[in-house]
């Protein structure tokens, strides 16, 4: 799993000047804006179609560690131990089913939410940008959530995504790492999808 999850070698890459980058980035932005629209409008079943069946979707926990330490000290490592969550597709479907019961009180009544996605950057494309079938993307998110009266939470962070293109399904996310800029989580719950 580490080869999939490790974006450290990709972060510094700049592919923007290469042929095909602008067109692919535009496609990717459209994908993320669609995803945000589906989630914010509670079309969870349609959103699930954007996720591959072999999905790994996790949110590491973070710790305050000295500068010189490895990433594995600061972040929990996918595939090992405990994170805020580590979902496969089945678990994500369960989370949607839970909301649909109408008695998941942490989301009933539903929260009002808006996802903002920005800084979309393609950091890897295979076989190449013009004929890409596999890509690695970094982006930023802001999720504003308000529920009941004044119960308001803003989640801000980064996503490291890997997407795959299939003729039938179009682009689908098969790996997502959600990095939030908090150690001790300053929110009572994570009931919405980041």
């Amino acid at each position: 799993m580490s080869a999939v999850s490790d974006f450290s070698d990709l972060i510094g890459r700049n592919l923007a000047a290469q042929p095909g980058y602008a067109a692919l980035q535009s496609q990717l932005e459209a994908f993320y804006f669609l995803e945000a629209d589906l989630l914010d409008n509670r079309r969870y079943r349609a959103w699930l179609d954007l996720l591959a069946d072999d999905l790994t979707y996790y949110m590491p926990m973070r710790a305050n560690v000295p500068l010189a330490h490895d990433r594995s000290d600061e972040f929990t490592t996918v595939g090992e131990g405990i994170h805020w969550f580590e979902n496969d597709k089945w678990t994500v479907v369960k989370r949607v089913e839970q909301i649909e019961t109408g008695i998941h009180y942490a989301e009933e009544p539903l929260s009002r939410i808006t996802h903002m996605i920005s800084n979309v950057r393609i950091v890897d494309a295979k076989p190449d940008l013009e004929t890409a079938q596999q890509i690695a993307v970094t982006n930023r998110f802001l999720l504003y959530q308000n529920r009941i009266v004044d119960d308001t939470t803003t989640f801000v962070g980064r996503r490291h995504d890997r997407l795959r293109h299939n003729a039938g399904t179009g682009w689908q996310v098969h790996f997502r790492e959600v990095i939030i800029e908090q150690g001790i989580l300053q929110a009572k719950n994570i009931t919405n999808f980041l």
């Binding site: 405990i82 989370r95 009180y105």
Partner: peptide, 23 residues
């Protein structure tokens, strides 16, 4: 660990509803 994560804590499907009650 997979079971613990889907059950427990702020993203845990069970305990989210506890937090709502306590709040």
């Amino acid at each position: 660990r997979h079971y613990y994560m889907r059950y427990s804590g702020p993203a845990g499907m069970t305990e989210q509803d506890d937090m709502e009650n306590w709040l």
